[in-house]
Structure formats: C-alpha cells, structure tokens
Amino acid sequence: MAQLIRFGGHAPRVEPSAFVAPGARLIGDVEIGPEASIWYNCVLRGDVNRIRIGARTNIQDGSVIHVDSPKPGAAAGHPTIIGADVLIGHMAMVHGCILHDRAFVGLGAIVMDGCEIESGAMLAAGAMLTPGKVIPSGQLWAGRPAKYVRDLSGAELDGQAQGIAHYVALARAHAEAISGR
C-alpha cells in the first residue's frame, strides 16, 4: 500500500477518485486532486512547505516531488504547485516550482526552485531547468542546462491531451487490479 505520513501537523489529502500506487509515499502537506495518479515508488514530501497536485495530473514511477523551505529573503520559500492535466515522466525530480495546467516534464528531467513551466510548455527528457527559469507556453526546452529549442506543434499538444486521457484510464485499471475487482 501507499504510505500517507502525517508530518508537522499536516496529513496528506487525496481525492477519492485519485490513484496512489502501492509503494508511493506522501508526507506532510500534500494534496492530490481528482483523477490524478501518483505511480509506483514516487515520493511527494511536503514537510517544510506545501505540495498541490491538480486534477488528472500524473506523476510517473520513481519521481520525487519536494519543496523549498522558507528562509531569509524568501519568506514563503517555494512550494510545489502542479496544475491540472500535467504529465510528469518517470524518474523526474520536481522541486519548489510551479507547473501550470497542461505542462509536460519528460523522463528523468529536473525542475529546480523558483521555476515555472507554463501551460502547454514542455521540458524534454533528461533536461535540467535551473533555478528561476520560466518556459513560456507552447515552447520545448531541452539540455543541461535547459534552453529553448523550438515551438511545439499542434500535433504535439494534441498528443499531450491524449496522454492525459490514457493515464486517467490506466490508473483506473491499476486500481481495479490492485483491489482484485
């Protein structure tokens, strides 16, 4: 089973229609929206700030989502706010940032403190978005450090929408398999 761990007076909150896979760990101030999916062996650690995951967002196997502590010069620190319909690939590291609705983070990518990925923007597999960078809507960034590569096509954006629907259905199938239905 997934582990939901109370920390610092906060317990993770998961909408009943969301899927949290066995082996996932949600710690502290973490909120998971409807039909979102948190896959096997993910860690979402909201111990020193908050994590919010929007509806239908999926965080794929082995990903780590964390936050940045409040500190002098950054009184609020950096929570991690992930909007609706976001795709986050396997083994991604997402830390103290904002991913707007319909953002995409590729396999093994890293998103660091203070970054934003706007709606319909994509960070390529293996890329590293360094602190404070913003990927504008409709752009693909790649590399270490990540830089602008090109604008995304309509077909690529449509593919993201299909990926969201696929993961909602796949999460339901996994939940049924686990429950033995």
Rank of each mutant, 00 (worst) to 15 (best):
A84S: 14
A165D: 15
G8E: 14
A173V: 04
S63V: 12
R150K: 15
I5M: 14
T80F: 07
R50D: 05
G46Q: 05
V94Q: 06
V94N: 06
G108S: 09
S179F: 03
G9I: 06
S69P: 06
A165T: 13
A142G: 08
S153R: 09
A125W: 02
A173E: 15
A161L: 14
Q139W: 01
N41G: 07
Y167C: 08
V168I: 14
I117N: 01
F104N: 01
H90I: 04
R56I: 11
R172K: 15
H10S: 15
A92C: 07
E118R: 13
L26C: 03
H66S: 13
S179D: 12
L152I: 02
I32P: 02
G9W: 02
S153D: 07
P145N: 09
W39Q: 02
V149Q: 14
M112P: 05
V20Y: 11
T130M: 12
R150T: 09
A76K: 13
A173M: 12
V64Y: 11
I164N: 09
R181D: 11
S153T: 15
E118W: 02
Q60L: 12
M112T: 06
G106Q: 04
S17F: 09
E176M: 13
A11W: 01
F104A: 07
L129G: 02
R45Q: 12
D113Q: 07
G143M: 08
N49P: 08
R172D: 14
I38A: 02
D113S: 04
F104R: 01
I81R: 08
Q162G: 14
R50P: 00
